[in-house]
Nucleic acid binder design. Structure first.
Lengths: 1086, 180
DNA sequence: AATGTGTAGCTGTCCGGT
DNA sequence: CCCAGACAGCTACACATT
């Protein structure tokens, strides 16, 4: 080899730094520098020394080259994340490895593809040298070094072809280990490295019990505490059937960025990367219906707008992917295909998806047309599209498009009718077939197909009915046609239950007024229960409003006597019950839609006595439930009946099974909401009793559903101002944070919404919240301290933060005519400082309180008295109950300083002695004087300055920032002369009693009346019941007599009879003047 | 009687009013992020501070940061081995290179051999999945409507009452419209 | 494109444990 | 006694918005 080509090693070594120096500036020169570097590399390779007597060679040149590159690399290791120059070098190193490998492959191709020389090329030697070097840094102390080392390794590994097996294992181990690194960014790099690695992993190579890398990564995806790390997994893990379910779980990640990424990821994988004709891995058609629904529900329902828009984009892509090659015939084709992705009956999801498409692809919305042909043969998808389209037009007030889309009434009525007839025919056919051939002759497949067909028809009718509500009924002919049709439908017991409420909606729209609607339904009920009457009634019902208003209600008189139940065969009985159930459903549907008073609609009386009351008495759950609901709905429009029946509902609560209990409680809450003045007003005891009763039920309730329901109910009562009791508010707070309710999302999310609304909607409510703050804080701190290990609960600091937030006057909404109460936080500060005097409060808790002070909003204007009181309290605290905790002390001092500065003017010349004269502050000084400085024995950890005080010093001005830290040490040795005079001996006795209570509250706070121990136990098990439980005057629940089931039923019958006989149906209706008193009596009677 | 004060109820009414949208917006911005329950609760700063306090001051510094470059050119002072030793110095004893709660690294951490003793049951506990609960989409709707008559809200009830107080038996068509 | 806001990471200080 | 963890305040960056 000619000597001149053999550059000296020194030359080579000095050229490398120049290349690196260039490479850090820009990536643009990298390609050029790969070539340059590679040239040097090859050059260096020529320097070898023979060893082993010439049998092998020592690659001194390569070694030197590697040394320099490693040395260069070492220089960027301590550089922290985000240093772009360093990142460029990392890229450069990785790029160089790739470059070398490509060269090697080229070489191999030229030489005919020797595979076995891979471990002996300069490239492989270089790479493995580099990797070994990097691995040494994996446990470095410096986190930046660990970061860079893993980063470079990941980069190098990803660009390497083959890898020595031992080295591979070592890298694998090390990266897995770094997955547990303390620093998230190191873990991120470890994830990237592992993701590059695991594509080549062979499960057969794994040792026993060693999990494959994918599994570890998926575990990281779910469990890593850092969002960055989970995100790294999400973008780097390969999506396939095995990993998909783990990926789907990220649609609920706490990190919004991850959620957003999730949807963009799904979108980009909808189509396969190479334009092969298969489906993308996340093509909607590959996913299950449940998965699609999950994606839509979570995505469009996300609270983060950015996530929602990513989801919306994905859904549009779904439509495009699914609708591909469908353009042509019908503009709605692709939309129909899109809708086929969903189960349309599943509430709301498909609708949300479609509306989202309408919103983001206006062109699609604009191109949908509903010609006559469209209505000819409606599939579920088409019916659904039309209905949602119309609803969308209405909600966006797009009258023009609405006009063009709506069919004429007669057309739709005709379509509904014919589909309905088809359905009925089919049902009948099926019955006949079943009867003729026997149950088992039909094979499952056939039956399922028929079932589907029926469901489809039912669904189509339902959608058309929903659409019918929005039609224009100016045309009288059409109106009558529709009216007649729907009326006929509801009078048939074969009408599927799901269509019943749809029909009633249409009827309501078509009824000229409520009374006619009520009358109509009552008539239908009578027809159903009395088939003989059908013809007569039908003729009366032919004509909507005109005849209706004039037709006298003769139903009851004409009514033929039904067979007494005792004479019925079991079949007849079952049939009668089924009819009654249907009638009750009709009643409920009707009553749900009206709001006139019971008294105005005398037609209701009949069904009340004949249908509803008997149903309430039945012991079959379904009948009783519907009966109770009907009765409850009647109560909502009949005040008198509500008063009389309320006790009945209360008595049903405790013993009822869950479903019934829920119903009854709903009734109770609704009645309270509607007739609030009758039950909760008049500051009567009745209201208190009801509240206590409810609280008790709530606290003892096991079922989450019932708990949540009661929570919503109570929240409603509070929000509407019908209940103002602080105990109730406290119970809500307890329920909110209690570990007991941790799994009850309904309850917690209700309260998450409720508290801010409640507080921000009214300063009065904020006040109420402020009043319960300290007691709640104290109790919750106790609960927190004694928490079981496995139970989770938010920290007291969080509780404080919430209260501070909720009570912030700046966040209260300004309601017309209502002055904002901007002193709430100020008063809270005063109370907090008072609480700091408490001797038995732990320093952690005091610290939390102190730290909250800085977050309080202090208004610019405060009364002299108030500001002086606060100042005095803070001033005295330092001397009488110095805080042991420095951070707490600092926080307090800072707050004191801020206050002193802000109200400098008002506080100058402020003198405690003078201040004491003020009669209005007597209570304050009584409080202060009852506090004695803690004795030396009490001071276990912190030495307290000696107490030596003179009257004079006490009287000094406190206006300056007297509690400032340095001076404080001396100042705090200034207890009042009062205290010195009274002496320790006398005080000792008081310490344990009055001082304690006095220092905690000015007024008697209920929670303090209860021993903390009891409070804690309660709080643990039945937190919500706390307030009610401890109140001895809590009334026995009405049905406390734990009688046998029979006795229970007998009693129930009695009560119901009383409801009917004691009060003649007529008397339910009349409204006497003495009602108010009766509410009280109602509950007195026990 | 605090219930008679024109406060809470008026506001609730306002939220359902057409003009009440602004109100709803306020609530949306202010706290709807905290829907997921107390454990996901976060303090959000007060929004509006419209007072034009001071301006013009915090503009004129756009000082570009010093163009940092790695010095590859000057020769290393120490040799590679020494530098590597320094860079790769393992942590001083007992340090946490790893997340607490995860079993330690062979080389670096304080994990004593028999440390299964007290905190043995780390793995058993369910790890945090870092997911939000299913959103129930709680809204004012649930708080102002009746359970059994979801189409009727408090607002309507108020009207109904007042109509009734007048002894007026019939409701106007406006009422129907609102029920929808 | 420029600005403002919100978050996240970093750094300094302090308490608790070995 | 020293160090490590925790915490609070600060700064810088990235994001969204006009």
């Amino acid at each position: 080899m000619p000597a001149r080509t053999l550059s000296s090693l020194e030359e080579i070594s000095s050229s490398i730094p120049k290349i690196f120096d260039q490479a850090q500036v820009s990536t643009a020169n990298h390609q050029k520098n790969y070539v340059a570097l590679y040239k040097l590399h090859l050059e260096a390779s020529k320097h070898t020394e023979p060893i082993n007597k010439g049998r092998t060679v020592k690659h001194v040149g390569q070694k030197a080259f590697e040394d320099v590159v490693v040395e260069m690399t070492s220089r960027l290791l301590p550089l922290k994340k985000g240093t772009t120059v360093a990142d460029r070098i990392v890229k450069f190193i990785g790029g160089y490895v790739r470059f070398m490998n490509e060269k090697v492959l080229e070489e191999r191709k030229k030489n005919g593809g020797d595979a076995d020389e891979y471990d002996d090329t300069p490239a492989s030697r270089f790479a493995s040298r580099m990797l070994k070097f990097l691995l040494k840094g994996f446990l470095a102390k410096d986190k930046n070094v660990r970061y860079r080392v893993v980063q470079i390794l990941a980069e190098v590994v990803s660009h390497m072809g083959e890898l020595d097996e031992d080295l591979y294992t070592q890298i694998r181990e090390s990266l897995l280990d770094r997955l547990r690194d303390k620093e998230p960014f190191v873990r991120v790099q470890a994830v990237i490295g592992l993701a590059k690695l695991y594509g080549t992993e062979d499960p057969a190579d794994l040792e026993d019990g060693e999990p494959p890398v994918v599994e570890v990564l998926l575990d990281t995806l779910a469990h890593d505490p850092s969002g960055d790390v989970r995100r790294a997994v999400l973008v780097n893990v390969h999506i396939n059937q095995a990993t998909l379910s783990y990926i789907l779980a990220r649609s609920r990640d706490t990190d919004a960025i991850i959620r957003k990424l999730f949807y963009t990821l799904l979108e980009s994988n909808c189509v396969p990367p190479d334009d092969s004709n298969g489906l993308g891995i996340t093509d909607p058609r590959v996913l299950s219906i449940a998965q699609r629904e999950l994606i839509v529900r979570n995505g469009l329902g996300d609270r983060e707008p950015s996530v929602r828009s990513a989801a919306a984009k994905l859904i549009v892509t779904w439509l495009e992917v699914v609708g591909e090659k469908m353009e042509g015939d019908e503009p709605a084709k692709e939309v129909i295909a899109f809708l086929r992705l969903f189960d349309l009956a599943e509430t709301g999801i498909a609708e949300d998806a479609l509306r989202s498409v309408f919103a983001s692809r206006v062109d699609i919305f604009d191109n949908v047309e509903f010609g006559d042909q469209y209505w000819a043969d409606l599939t579920p998808e088409k019916a659904f599209l039309a209905r949602v389209f119309v609803d969308h037009c209405i909600s966006t007030k797009d009258d023009a498009r609405l006009e063009s889309a709506l069919p004429v009434v007669t057309l739709l009525a005709f379509r509904i009718q014919s589909t309905y007839n088809d359905l009925m025919e089919q049902i009948q056919d099926d019955e006949e077939q079943k009867f003729l051939r026997g149950e088992d002759h039909e094979d499952d497949e056939e039956r399922a197909r028929k079932e589907d067909e029926r469901m489809d028809k039912e669904f189509v009718i339902g959608e058309m009915l929903r659409l019918a509500v929005n039609l224009d009924y100016a045309d009288e002919i059409g109106r009558r046609k529709m009216f007649q049709l729907v009326r006929d439908m509801i009078s048939q017991e074969t009408l599927p239950e799901s269509l019943l409420s749809r029909c009633l909606d249409v009827l309501r729209k078509l009824s000229p007024n409520e009374r006619d609607l009520i009358r109509l339904v009552v008539e239908v009920v009578h027809e159903l229960r009395d088939p003989e009457m059908e013809e007569k009634e039908a003729s009366a019902g032919d004509d909507g409003e005109t005849t209706y208003a004039e037709t006298p209600m003769t139903v009851r008189t004409v009514r033929a006597a039904p067979k007494p139940p005792s004479e019925m065969t079991p079949e007849e009985k079952a049939q009668a019950d089924a009819i009654d159930l249907r009638c009750l459903a009709l009643c409920i549907g009707m009553l749900e839609r009206v709001n006139g008073t019971f008294e105005e609609n005398s037609t209701l009386e009949g069904i009340l006595g004949e249908l509803i009351i008997p149903a309430v008495k039945r012991k079959e759950l379904a009948l009783r439930e519907k009966g109770l609901v009907s009765l409850g709905l009647c109560c909502l429009i009949a005040r008198r009946m509500a008063l009389n029946s309320f006790q009945l509902f209360l008595s049903q609560v405790q013993s009822a099974p869950e479903l019934l209990k829920i119903r009854v409680l709903q009734i109770i809450f609704d009645i309270l909401m509607v007739h609030d003045r009758d039950f909760l007003g008049n500051e009567g005891v009745a209201g208190d009793r009801i509240i206590e009763f409810l609280l008790q039920i709530w606290g003892n309730e096991e079922s989450e559903k019932v708990q949540a329901l009661m929570c919503v109910g109570i929240a409603k009562l509070m929000l509407s101002g019908m209940v103002t009791d602080e105990r109730v508010l406290k119970s809500l707070v307890f329920a909110y944070v209690s570990p007991e309710t941790a799994g009850n999302q309904e309850l917690r999310q209700c309260l998450s919404y409720f508290f801010p609304v409640y507080c921000y909607s009214s300063p009065a409510n904020q006040r109420r919240m402020q009043k319960i703050f300290i007691p709640i804080f104290e109790e919750l701190s106790q609960v927190y301290k004694e928490l079981d290990d496995d139970r989770e609960m938010i920290s007291p600091a969080n509780v404080v933060a919430m209260f501070v937030d909720w009570t912030d006057p700046q966040k209260a909404v300004a309601v017309r005519g209502q002055a904002a109460d901007d002193k709430i936080h100020f008063d809270m500060a005063t109370e907090i400082v008072r609480t700091l005097y408490s001797k038995d409060m732990e320093k952690d808790e005091k610290k939390v309180l102190c730290q909250s002070l800085s977050k309080l909003y202090i208004p610019d204007v405060v009364d002299d008295d108030q500001i002086r009181t606060l100042k005095l309290l803070m001033h005295n605290l330092a001397s009488r109950r110095p805080l042991k905790d420095t951070t707490a002390n600092n926080a307090l001092t800072r707050f004191d300083a801020a206050i002193s500065k802000k109200f400098e003017k008002q506080l100058e010349d402020f003198d405690e002695e003078q201040y004491r004269e003020l009669e209005s502050l007597k209570e304050l000084f009584e409080f202060l004087d009852d506090i004695i400085p803690e004795s030396d024995e009490d001071e276990q950890d912190t030495p307290v300055p000696k107490k030596r005080a003179t009257r004079k010093r006490r009287s000094q001005s406190v206006a300056s920032t007297a509690t400032a830290e340095t001076t404080d040490r001396e100042e705090s040795a200034t207890p009042s002369a009062e205290n010195s005079r009274k002496g320790k001996g006398k005080k000792r006795a008081r310490l344990s009693t009055e001082t304690d209570t006095d220092s905690n509250a000015t007024e008697e706070i209920p929670s303090r009346a209860m021993p903390a121990r009891t409070a804690r136990t309660k709080a643990k098990s039945k937190v919500a019941a706390q307030q009610a439980d401890r109140d001895e005057s809590t009334p026995e629940p009405p049905s406390r007599k734990r009688a046998s089931k029979k006795a229970e039923e007998a009693r129930l019958d009695e009560e119901i009879d009383g409801l009917l006989d004691g009060d003649e149906p007529d008397s339910i209706m009349d409204s006497d003047e003495d009602e108010e008193e009766e509410v009280g009596e109602l509950l007195e009677a026990e | 009687d605090p219930r008679r004060a024109p406060n809470e109820r008026d506001l609730i009414m306002a939220m359902t009013d057409a003009e009440g949208d602004g109100m709803m917006d306020y609530f949306d911005q202010a706290f709807l992020k905290n829907w997921a329950g107390p454990e996901h609760w976060k303090l959000r700063k007060v929004v509006r501070k419209p007072e034009a306090t001071d301006n013009a001051a915090p503009k004129p510094r756009k000082e570009k940061k010093e163009a940092f470059k790695i010095d590859f050119l000057t020769p290393a002072e120490k040799d590679l081995k020494t530098r590597a030793k320094e860079l790769f110095a393992p942590v001083t004893r007992g340090a946490g290179i790893n997340l607490p709660g995860t079993s330690g690294t062979k080389g670096g951490t304080s994990t004593r051999k028999g440390s299964r003793g007290k905190r043995a049951k780390e793995k058993e506990e369910k790890k945090d999945e870092h997911t939000l609960p299913d959103d129930m989409h709680f809204s004012s709707r649930q708080l102002i409507t009746l359970f059994l008559k979801p189409e009727f809200s408090l607002r309507m009830r108020g009207q109904h009452m007042s109509l009734n107080d007048r002894g007026d038996g019939d409701v106007d068509e406006n009422f129907w419209a609102q029920a929808a």
